[in-house]
Simulated scan of single mutants.
Amino acid sequence: MPDRQPDRLAPGNGPDRRLAGTTRPAEERRGRGATANPGARYERAQTEAFDDGWDREEAPARLRTEVAREQARTILTRNSSPDIPFDRSINPYRGCEHGCVYCFARPNHAYVGLSPGLDFETRLFAKLNAAECLEAELSARGYRPRTIALGTATDPYQPIEREHRITRGVLKVLSRFRHPVGIVTKSNLVVRDVDILAEMAARNLVKVAISVTTLDPVLARGMEPRAPHPEKRLAAIRALSAAGIPVMAIMAPIIPSLNDHEIEALLARVREAGAGEANYVLLRLPLELDDLVSDWLGEHYPGRQRHVLSLVRQARGGKAYDAEWGRRMTGAGRYAELIAARFRLAKRRLGFTETRVTLDDSQFLAPSSQLALF
């Protein structure tokens, strides 16, 4: 596949835009990822903005981030999916201020009556009692430890974590219980907690996956506007590795015709920074995400919109999304096979390990064991 840069065409309507009536003015959503705010799919009433000629012309107000403080009843989420390496996870926040337009978790916002579009990145929920809930669940009679995945749906180190510090509280509980955890983030804020993480890593209780989607800061700013600069993520890999914390780099997602040309260069940079493992996810477009990404492409890359979506469908059996286990992360067909082969060959050439770091769940301190410490 030839090395190429994405064409940065001037914003325009582009073909096949499908979110008319919910798109917000560019001035209003500056610094946000989604272009629109379509209604939540479970709501009976839907709204559509239009100009009736009576409104006084005013400068649109910038969208502000709103954080609702939530008291969670439980914090561990269980799953039985055979194609992911964990059966329990923690998400300290609902919604994510990073604003990644491609985020597969966006449709989850419909479950709280909010839009998977701009609401997902501006109307957030912080689970203030996450650490207390976790301690109670780990202390439950009969609890059996297995690695917890931290940050599977929304980023545990998104900007509001600087204030709320919920993720740090969760890590303190896990460290005290000597419970293994795998962290997924695209933020260099994770380095703040290197004191806890290094101590856990010395006991083989933690690994961190850093998502680096692109090395191009212009593309990154457009599709993940409030996530840290790619160089800051590389610096985070470097700092964690230097502290003895095992790091995996994830190229997620690979977007056909936008960042797929970067595979080899990106893998070389994360390997140089100290990542020992690497993985990827091919762009997933479940539910509302199909329209949201299409609308975003129509505004930012109208000349690529149809081509990108065509390649996605080629890798998804002709659909926007194929939820079949074993295929949903990487796709199928010739394009998907080409991406898999390039990724595999680049990893081998750069010396990435093919063996996943396996964390130790035998050190878990049950409540009775912890009381004995006193």
Rank of each mutant, 00 (worst) to 15 (best):
M1V: 07
P2V: 12
P2C: 06
R4V: 08
Q5P: 00
R8G: 04
L9A: 15
A10L: 13
G14E: 06
P15W: 06
L19E: 06
T22Q: 14
T22D: 10
E27S: 15
R30H: 14
R32W: 06
G33F: 08
A34H: 03
A36F: 08
G39V: 10
R41H: 09
E48T: 12
E48L: 15
A49H: 03
D51S: 13
G53W: 12
R56D: 12
R56E: 15
A59V: 02
P60M: 06
A61D: 03
R62G: 14
E70V: 07
E70P: 00
Q71S: 14
T74G: 12
I75H: 09
R78C: 04
S80L: 14
S80N: 13
F86W: 15
D87M: 07
D87Y: 08
S89F: 10
I90N: 05
P92Y: 04
Y93C: 05
G95L: 02
C100Y: 05
N108C: 06
G113N: 09
P116Y: 07
D119C: 06
E121P: 06
R123Q: 13
A126Q: 03
L128T: 14
C133L: 07
L138F: 05
R141Y: 07
G142P: 03
R144N: 05
R146Y: 00
R146P: 00
T152R: 07
Y157L: 14
R162W: 13
V170H: 02
K172Y: 06
V173C: 03
F177V: 08
G182D: 08
I183E: 06
K186V: 02
N188G: 05
V191G: 04
V191S: 04
D195N: 00
V206N: 04
V208N: 01
T213G: 12
L219D: 04
L219R: 01
M223V: 12
P225I: 05
R226I: 09
R226M: 00
H229N: 14
R233K: 08
A235W: 03
A235L: 02
L240R: 01
S241H: 13
A243S: 15
A243P: 15
V247A: 11
M251I: 15
D260G: 01
E262C: 12
E264Q: 14
L266S: 01
A268P: 02
R269T: 09
V270I: 09
E272G: 07
A275V: 10
E277D: 11
N279A: 15
V281H: 04
P286A: 05
P286M: 02
E288R: 12
D291F: 14
W296I: 05
W296H: 04
W296V: 05
Y301K: 11
Q305S: 15
H307D: 10
V308A: 10
L309D: 13
G317S: 07
K319P: 02
R327L: 15
R327P: 09
A332W: 01
G333Q: 12
R334N: 12
A336G: 08
L338Y: 05
L338W: 10
F343E: 03
R344A: 13
L345Y: 04
L345W: 08
L345K: 12
A346K: 02
K347H: 06
L350H: 02
R356W: 11
V357G: 03
T358Y: 00
D360H: 04
Q363P: 00
Q363V: 01
S368T: 13
